[in-house]
Design a protein around this nucleic acid. Sequence first.
RNA 1: GGGCGCGUAGCUCAGUGGUAGAGCGCUUGCUUCACACGCAAGAGGUCACAGGUUCGAUACCUGUCGUGCCCA
Length: 875
Amino acid sequence: MELSSQYSARDVEHKWYTFWRERGYFKPSMDPSAPTFSIVMPPPNVTGVLHVGHALNNTWQDILIRFHRMLGDNTLWLPGTDHAGIHTQMKVDELLRSQGIDRREIGREAFIDEVWRWKEKYGGEILRQVEKLGASVDWSRLRFTMDQGLSKAVTEVFVRLYEEGLIYRGYYITNWCVSCRTALSDIEVEHEDEPGTLTYLRYPLDQEEGFVVVATTRPETMLGDTAVAVHPDDPRWKHLIGHHVRVPLIDRVIPIIADAYVDPEYGTGAVKVTPAHDPNDFQMGQRHHLPQIQVIGEDGRMTEEAGAYQGLDRQQARAQILQDLEALGVIEKAEALVHSVGHCEKCGTVIEPLVSLQWFVRTAPLAEPALAAVRSGDIQFVPQRFEKIYTNWMENIRDWCISRQIWWGHRIPAYYCDHCHEVTVARTAPDSCPVCHGPVHQDEDVLDTWFSSALWPFSTMGWPEETTDLAMFYPTSVLSTAYDIIFFWVARMVMQGLHFTGERPFATVLLHGLVRDSQGRKMSKSLGNGVDPMDVIEKYGADALRLALVLSSAPGNDQRYSDERVEAASRFANKVYNAIRYVRMNLPEGFTPQAVTMDNVEDLWIVQKLNQTTQHMTEWLKDFEFGQAARAIYDFLWDDYCDWYIELTKIHMRENPETSSNTLSMLVFVAEQALKLLHPFMPFVTEELWQSLPHQGDSIMVAPWPSPQNLPANRAQDVMDRVQSLIRTARNLRAEVNLPPGQRVHFQMVADDAETLADWQMEAAAIREMVRAQDISWHVKAEGAPKPHHALTGVCQGGSVYLPLEGIVDLAVEQARVQKTMEQTQRELERVEKQLADQKFRERAPEPVVAKAQEQRLELVARMERLKERWEDLQ
RNA sequence: GGGCGCGUAGCUCAGUGGUAGAGCGCUUGCUUCACACGCAAGAGGUCACAGGUUCGAUACCUGUCGUGCCCA
């Protein structure tokens, strides 16, 4: 069969994914005697599409999963999606509006039906993209946060927390998005530094002369001021504490209070207090029992309390108020400044702090065990430094606002009596009020999406039922996610997991960095610099994308995406493809590999390299060092297997056709092992190639992970080092004078001792071919080796290479060349000798380091000697 | 203001207590019977700076500068 010289990922990837899935390889073995390895996939938004960050994270997880599956573990990777409350609602709302439908007109139920319909139609998109990536997830266990089972878990958790007094409802200042029209938790607010104006306003004193100057960046809130606060020890204001001022424009009389919160350094040291519109003022208001006057409504417009300004948008109101204040002459001055402004994470609108009735989780009691689990090392962060971010947050945790004023999500299981207003929190809706038997209605709000995400590791496995999956796969082994989600998700999973199952939800939290664009900028819609992984896969293949992402990633570090890297990775796929193509082309029809005998240097050498690669990779994969592991197999396949081993076997088979069957078996054996090592990184191409070679078993993905081969003690590594050094030196001489590769020349190889000569001669045929020699004369230095006059000189490990070129070599030039090499060698020698002359070094440095230096010295001394002699010969 | 990263070849990045590596780019030569998405040979770095620990620091510690992120 004619095989293309170019590998086409597009033609094979889909085929193998279907093959794997149909054979059920993605499902766990359920073997109770095997170690268990489980991961729950961080659920992407059901409305979303895969971005490069997902691609990286899913690649990491797939590497772990495939590695452990090959190790023989009972391995589960559970996929799923998240209902993404606000985001999805906005998306469907937008769609309906484009059709001229207002969700408020069709009502809650009809709208939710629309969302479900939308989810069924488009919600699978991201999962199809996960497939394209090659993710070996168990599709039979696919979950969605709004599934019945998971919803049941949500209700159960809410009810239990309520019964334990860990959920409460109360009036509190929360972050309100006037665009999304819902409350948000603290971490859903993004703070950004923005230019603003600090306006200094004169509030005239009531019943006396003079005024107090307060500074504010939000003059429109003055209509809701209920006090002016100063620091209790501030000498400038101390005498006015307890006096009153009049708020301009509305003429409200408010007290001057003393509160240590006030920073005397900021502004004038006196601040206006608006308890209904600022979180700090709210706290102060509580301390001093100040009234709350809401002047901005949930729609971002001024309320009735704002008097003449009622109905104005907050921005318009600010402009109007400033104008009016100006007219009144109460503006003392205005300063430009940069200050931090909170924005809605979802829509970017400036947050309006508002007092409203919301549900909260009392987090302190949950945080305590969550903190302990990480401190004790029961849960480990990779990289470890993120522990600190986690513990800092946990130590300063604030209550979690969990109610959202939207329709799409888990509705809060709280029921209110229409008569006596009794609140009933229950697993199932009560028919009537348990107190007065009056009619009840359910809370209109839904829960924060993260409330259900926090239960993901166990709700997906059937909790609160005691299922087999829960017993077998929970706690999970690893949670892999981005570091920017530690607070939103990781922390809350730990809290809920420990509280409800008594066990950590996962043993390891593995964190990856952000994937940025090629210029290091965050990928974003507004910049239009996002990279669609599907385009990349279409162009280069999923394997290439995976390898490229893994090669340039280290845990916790951001990385840049660039097409060039993916291209490099696809070239590697092509390289491996061609290596295997070469092996196949040499296999006779119906060839069955036999048990190999390793009777020559290159065989022993390549297996030794393979062993090292296997050992390192196994360790690195266990330590989550995917980049290191990928680099190891990349180098092994390209440098060791392709550039040296295959080339050596070509010569070997030509010289020893009678043993070619063994050589072919070796080629197949090493290739198969290497493909297995590469498989977690590049599942498709490795399957394609593995299937094309003689093999045992049905799929590489269920083949056992390689373990190092037993080898007899041997010197293959040393021999190959010397041989490679000799070949490189000889090739270097050729290149120096631009000898065309076709031109066969005569070489003289002079070894320092008989042992080196013997080593070289073990690979004499290979050396002859690889340096393109007409013939080679072999010598040992001591035995009166020839001293060719008109020859290029090269020094290598253990000896010299001469390339006699009558008529081409200029003695003076060659002398200068040798001189230059001598100088170089001399410098190195001096360094080593200085080190060895230091008694402290010999005493305190570890023995192998000293030995190595001594060895180095000997080699350099010998090299110097050779060069000196040569230099004299050239005189 | 507090915390955490990063600063290594032209570019993008790995990495290690024993004075440095990759990919891309660059130079030279090659259609050598797996691969020109290739082969071979090369050029290119006082590992940001200053102290300290150490026999030895690019790596560990302290500080400085530059840069990025998170929290308040």
